[in-house]
Structures are given as C-alpha cells and as structure tokens.
Design a protein around this nucleic acid. Structure first.
Lengths: 191, 191
DNA sequence: CCATTTTGGGACTCCGAACTCTCATTTTCG
DNA sequence: CGAAAATGAGAGTTCGGAGTCCCAAAATGG
C-alpha cells in the first residue's frame, strides 16, 4: 500500500510539530486560520502545505494522529492491570496528560462525526476504557446500573472541565487529576 | 434609551425563530454558514440580514438571547426554594430543557470569552446556581471541599454529556435528567 | 378588500482565507 | 566540504461565504 517512502527524521519531526500544534490550536478555536496554525507551529505557511495539501487533509491527519496519541497514552496507563479503581485513576491521569488532543477530538462532536476513522483498527468492543469499566462493574467496584458508554462519556466531560478550569486560571494544574477522580468517583454530595 | 420602536408581532416571532435556530445550529457546528442557519430557521438569507447586519451581530444577539432564556429557565426552577437536593434536581431539569442554548453558550469557551456580556445585570455573586450550591454546602448536603464554581462546571459538563448521548441515539430522552442527577450526586462508584 | 408590512429569491460585489508557484537560503547528513 | 533535502518568504490566483440591492409575491391587519 505504502510506496516504500520512509520519512526522514527532519520531516518526521516537522510533521509531528504541525499535527500536535494543530490539535492544540484547533481545540481552542475551531475557526483558526491555517496561517495561525503555521505560526503557532513555528513553520512557514508554505511548509504547512508541503505536509498537507488541504485544510481538510490537515484536520483529517490531526484526527488520525490524535487518536493514535490518545490511544497510546491509554495503553500506557495499563487499564487492564491491577484493581479497577487504581487503573481508573491512571486512566484519568493519562487523559489529563493528552488533554489537548482529547479536547480537539471531542469538544466539537462535528470533528469526530465528519473525520472519525472509518475502519477502526480496534473495534469498539476492544476499547480498553470500556473493558476497564465493565471489569470494575463485574468486580462490584463501579455502579452496575450505569452503561459503560455513559461512564466513559462522563470521564471525558470531567477531564475537559478540569482542563478548562486550569486554563481559565481558576485552578492549579497540580490538583486537577485528583479533583476529577474524586468527583468522578463520588459526585458532589457530602459523605 | 430605546427609540420607542416596539416590534410588530410578526417580526418578534421571526426574530425569536432566528435566534433559537442560530443557537441550535451553532451549538452543533460552530462553522455553520449564514445560509445554513437561515435555511434551518426557514427564512430567506435576505430576511436574516434584515434582523442582524452581521455574522458578528448574529452571534452577539444569539448570546444575549440565550443568556436570557437560560436565566429565565433557572429562575423558573426556583433554586432558592426548598431543600437543596430537590432544588438541584429542578435546576438540572431546567438545564436539560434549555440544552441547546447551554451548548451554544458553553461548549465553545471562545463564544462566551468573546461575546459574553460586558455588564452583567446580575453580578456573579447573585448567580442562583452558585448560591444554591453554597446553601447546600452550608446545610451539609453538598461536599464542602468542592468549590461552587467547580460544581457548577461539572453540572454543565454532565448535562451536555447527557444531551449528546440522547442525540447520538445511545440513550432515550426520557431518562437523561435523572441519570445526570444520579451521576452528579453519587459519581460512578458502586454503593 | 386594500394599504402596509414582511418576506423570498436572485444578481451582484467584496473580501479574506486558501491554495499555488518560485527562488533564494538554510539545514541536514554522507 | 558539498550535494541533497527542507525551509521561509513573498507574489499571484482561486474560491466561497458575507454582505448589498432590488423587485415581485405573500402575509398581515385595519
């Protein structure tokens, strides 16, 4: 399939910088200009066009890359190992760490709806987070009456909320993960 | 202040339709075209321009209108009356009912940052939801270690998540409010 | 029913972002 | 060092949405 054209180290680094910056900028401003993205990535507009022909292709490539990065972060969190509660905490921290990519992918549902991968390599049944939630429910740790998809969506929502709080200066970066975990686990009632 | 020019019933209705539709469309696609918005509102593009001169003014007017609608819905929820827990449940249901406006206002932080009212009639200290949360904390119902702003943000996040679940067909419209309330109150742990 | 208001649709211009192309310069790496 | 790769900057073109105008048709309301 691939024309046996390995990318040079230089080009690979530039490509990474472009895609990472695009995710970060587009997450915060969906109408950002290509010039703005190029500037933020510290690259000329011409160079940007050497890597992606189109705005459309830029978004497509950024989606693909972001899915890759997020997926790897979750794998690194070893969701399938250890007690579900501890695994969930690692997963939350992993989410926070790739917050930019997550916000790019999921803040605007339009992005995933239009550009989401057509042929998921790992079908939904193998999503590590879903499996973790199901495992936790089976072991009696997570509430059994909540659908795993809902729990996962809540996880995204809280992580996003936490990141926004940090960016708006209403919260220190340090405590976000634990606050999110606490709220996710226990809600807002006194106990 | 106002040039004593009361708007005819006809114009008032079309204005409402335009602003409501704009909120709904822009909430789901921040890059929607004016033509798309006009179509969705079932008015001609010319008519749209008769009510707002500019895309900028359309957004500004939609923000103002949405704040009005959301504020009224929250007032109707009587946040200051009765036990905090029940008041919070009414507030959640009110949020769900004006979900479109909420998503327009808060899904993209850029909107409120750029167009949010400059002179809030009711300063932040008088936000009924914040006051409800503080009251609930004072009465020992809500967790005291969570800042009211964080609780409010979580409330928004969960309502948004619920609405999205409904729209994606993963959940029935009926049970959303109670699911959001349950998750908000207790989190995801088994109990 | 008639005067007035409101609307829809088309034709037109304008503008900014997107995209293309070229060439000199810099960086990489054997 | 020297060839090849990669980049930056600028000029020029294209394109689509935004905004303007006009007129015939429809709806409103007295």
């Amino acid at each position: 399939m691939n024309g046996a054209a390995p990318e040079s180290r230089t080009r690979r680094r530039t490509r990474r910088a472009i895609l990472a910056t695009a995710a970060s900028v587009l997450a915060r401003n969906r109408t950002a200009t290509l010039a703005e993205i190029a500037d933020a990535a510290e690259v000329g507009r011409s160079t940007l066009h050497r890597y992606v022909s189109d705005r459309d292709e830029l978004i497509r490539a950024t989606v693909e890359d972001s899915i890759e990065v997020v997926g790897q972060a979750i794998l690194d969190a070893r969701a399938h190992e250890g007690p579900p509660l501890e695994a969930m905490r690692r997963v939350v921290m992993a989410h926070v760490e790739v917050g930019d990519r997550l916000m790019f992918l999921f803040r605007d549902p339009h992005v995933m709806r239009e550009y989401g991968v057509v042929e998921p390599e790992h079908p939904v049944e193998h999503d590590p987070v879903i499996e973790l939630i199901e495992r936790g429910q089976a072991e009696g740790v997570f509430a059994p009456h909540l659908s795993p998809q809902w729990v996962q969506r809540v996880l995204w929502a809280l992580v996003t909320a936490g990141i926004e709080q940090v960016e708006s200066g209403r919260m220190s970066p340090h405590g976000v993960a634990s606050l999110v975990i606490d709220t996710l686990e226990h809600g807002i009632l006194a106990r």
